[in-house]
């Protein structure tokens, strides 16, 4: 087990290096005149040249990248070129916000999609058709439209929730709930559609297995058969989809955080990328890559716990 974890961590480190190198080169090539973008239309050409020099943008790509890498390896990700804030602080102050949205959406996705998937698989008939219809609908409607619809109905008309902003859980639980509920729902809808279908299919497959017939012949109740035995066997594929969903939600958070003006990684990613704020974008790339590596590792371990057949040696 430890050997497996170490191996995965080493491959994660290699992945981080490759991702950071490719990202830096792409940012450099597509960055254009970043000093001009920072200073805007009023600055003179000389002021722009001075700014480029101060930021080190007048140096060759290799020198800039090796400088960034050597600092990054010592834990110094630099400062945002646009706000002057240290990148580590910019990320750590926002990562909890995004994770609370993504984890909330993942949890909501898991609960609802398992309920819907199992219900459809066990009851079949019209229930199955309704669940399938809802799934297709969830896939078809874009997340940002769902977000805007939720804001108009539940925040602006009914005034049940806040249309924008974020309150920390530690500051106020009701405030946190009022600000994360709509974004979490908006994020979760697409995921529910996908995972519910996966759970439905897996449960139907599992219900056809011999061991289920045996369990039933021993007089076990339907609920016990489904929730204790079938779901555990059907959970593997669903968990794999859910992990992919989690990574996808990090991307989905970009749009949702913009619409709800939530100070998370997604919001800052949009701003930093469009501005060409290389230190901040690089920090975000690293943070996201680390989260993805960790999530995949945890999912692998969970798969092993759920199903002894895939337990790691």
């Amino acid at each position: 087990m430890i050997k497996f974890i170490v191996r995965r961590l080493i491959s994660g480190a290699v992945l981080l290096f490759l991702i950071s190198t490719i990202s830096y080169v792409l940012l450099y090539l597509g960055g254009g005149d970043i000093a001009r973008r920072i200073l805007g239309q009023t600055a003179t050409a000389q002021t722009v040249a001075d700014k480029a020099h101060v930021l080190g943008l007048d140096r060759p790509l290799f020198v800039q990248y090796s400088d960034w890498l050597s600092h990054a390896l010592s834990g110094n990700l630099g400062e945002s070129w646009f706000t002057g804030q240290p990148v580590t602080i910019a990320i750590t102050s926002r990562v909890a916000v995004t994770l609370s949205l993504v984890l909330g959406a993942t949890l909501l996705t898991a609960v609802i999609s398992i309920a819907l998937g199992v219900w459809a698989a066990v009851r079949r008939g019209w229930v199955d058709r309704v669940v399938q219809f809802i799934s297709v609908l969830g896939f078809a409607v874009p997340g940002f439209l769902i977000a805007l619809g939720l804001v108009i109905v539940f925040a602006l008309n009914l005034r049940w929730f806040k249309p924008t902003g974020y309150v920390n859980l530690t500051d106020s639980f009701p405030g946190w709930l009022a600000t994360v509920t709509l974004p979490v729902i908006a994020l979760a809808v697409g995921g529910i559609a996908g995972v519910a279908q996966q759970v439905r299919g897996s449960v139907i497959d599992a219900l056809r297995q011999d061991y289920v017939r045996t369990l039933r012949s021993r007089g076990l109740s339907q609920n016990r058969v489904v929730f204790k035995h079938v779901l555990r066997n059907a959970g593997g594929p669903a968990l794999a989809v859910l992990s992919l969903q989690f990574v996808g939600l990090l991307g989905g958070a970009v749009i949702v955080e913009q619409i709800f003006a939530i100070p998370g990684l997604g919001q800052v990613a949009v701003t930093a990328t469009s501005q060409g704020d290389i230190p901040l974008v690089m920090g975000l790339v690293l943070a996201t890559a680390i989260i993805v590596v960790i999530v995949n590792l945890v999912i692998d371990l969970l798969q092993g716990w759920l199903n002894p057949k895939v337990r790691l040696s």
Binding site: K162, P163, G165, Q258, I259, A261, T271
Partner: peptide, 18 residues
Amino acid sequence: MKVYQDPTAMLNAIKGGQ
């Protein structure tokens, strides 16, 4: 001072009295 770089978010904040 609340930053709304997305015009829709700004409009929603205004309409929501934020």
